[in-house]
């Protein structure tokens, strides 16, 4: 069975083609293609414009996979959460494909896509505790089975990835900030700035205090000291974010007793955080999984995977209306 998945919920336009549940035939992500393939220079920041390239992206995914639309058995499309306009572009395109080639098309929750991305490459024992962290999302989820999720905690203000970016903004490192903080942190003293675990008693997260603390601290430094301590601040912030995540994960693992721990979303690309999670998992004897780097950010193959799993399990959603604030269905 061959599934075509399209993702266009916010910044990224992507199409992936999956054979059965685990064989990636192609996964084309626009920002990674744009310079070489389409000639134009599209600034990272203007990426929502990328929706205009959806036709080329799908065509390239088909070509790379060496399949034609006639070979496709199922189409999956993200219907939320995301920007209404961006979602609509993807949905309209998927509907058009489905009608023209007479294929079933089903809606996929972006968050479920990120969770299931891990299952393409690994056989993961369930239940699992999933820490989904990106620029826009921070969700701690207990996954009992496919389609059975329980949100244990989420951010009450900024997402973890956003904390990276906002600190990078304050330090004048530019966008996107995550990779820049990680690089700079290598040379820094992570104990330079000590920040607490926020809202200790809950499984929810709060990251907005980090930017305020850094902002205030940085403002008081002389130009010379700023230069001197920039790497220390980066390292301290990275540690603080990792500690905040792990503290709640440890709590969740303690009460849920999962077989596996999964890190997913864009922040899963941060190797410092990945290593800390890995170390923690091995200490407590739980299997640890984080997706390959290409599956961390928004991509089409995760949508194909979620579509496939829901389709074969009879839990597919055929209502394709875009839902900007779509929540994960809790069972």
């Amino acid at each position: 069975m061959i599934t075509l998945g399209i993702e266009s919920s916010c910044d990224e336009t992507s199409c992936g083609i999956l054979s059965d549940g685990d064989n990636v035939l192609s996964n084309v992500i626009l920002t990674q293609e744009i310079h070489s393939e389409f000639g134009g220079v599209v600034p990272e920041i203007a990426s929502r414009e990328h929706n205009k390239f959806i036709y080329e992206i799908v065509e390239k995914a088909l070509n790379n996979a060496k399949v034609r639309m006639d070979d496709i058995d199922l189409i999956g499309i993200t219907n939320g959460p995301g920007l209404i306009g961006a979602l609509m572009v993807g949905i309209a395109f998927a509907k058009g494909l489905a009608m023209n080639y007479k294929k079933p098309v089903i809606a996929v929750n972006h968050i479920e896509g990120h969770i299931l991305a891990n299952f393409i490459v690994s056989n993961i024992k369930l239940p699992a505790v999933v820490m989904m962290v990106s620029g826009g999302h921070t969700e701690l989820i207990l996954m009992k089975d496919f389609g059975r999720y329980h949100v244990l905690g989420r951010t009450i203000d900024d997402a973890a990835g956003e904390a990276f970016d906002k600190v990078a903004r304050i330090l004048g490192l530019g966008y996107p900030g995550g990779p820049k903080i990680e690089k700079l942190a290598e040379k820094g003293d992570e104990n330079y700035l000590k920040l607490p675990i926020a809202i200790r008693k809950e499984l929810n997260f709060s990251f907005s205090g980090i930017k305020t603390a850094v902002m205030y601290h940085y403002r008081e430094l002389s130009e010379n000291d700023r230069e001197l301590h920039r790497a220390d601040i980066a390292a301290s912030i990275q540690k603080t974010i990792a500690d905040n995540l792990l503290y709640k994960v440890e709590k969740a693992v303690g009460t849920s007793k999962p077989e596996s721990l999964i890190l997913s979303g864009g922040v899963a690309a941060n190797s410092y955080i990945r290593n800390k999670f890995e170390k923690f998992s091995s200490e407590i004897g739980v299997d640890f999984y984080a997706p390959p780097l290409k599956l961390c950010t928004d991509n089409g193959i995760m949508v194909a995977k979620a579509a496939y799993e829901n389709y074969i399990r009879g839990t597919a959603t055929y209502n394709l209306n875009p839902v900007p604030n779509l929540k994960l269905i809790e069972v």
Binding site: C10, P81, G82, L83, I84, S134, G135, G136, R154, T155, I156, D157, D158, A159, G161, E162, D165, K166, S208, P324, N325
Partner: peptide, 12 residues
């Protein structure tokens, strides 16, 4: 649950 719209651009 009101969260920052910096990444999502619009929170509804």
């Amino acid at each position: 649950n009101v969260t920052s719209p910096t990444f999502t651009i619009v929170q509804e």
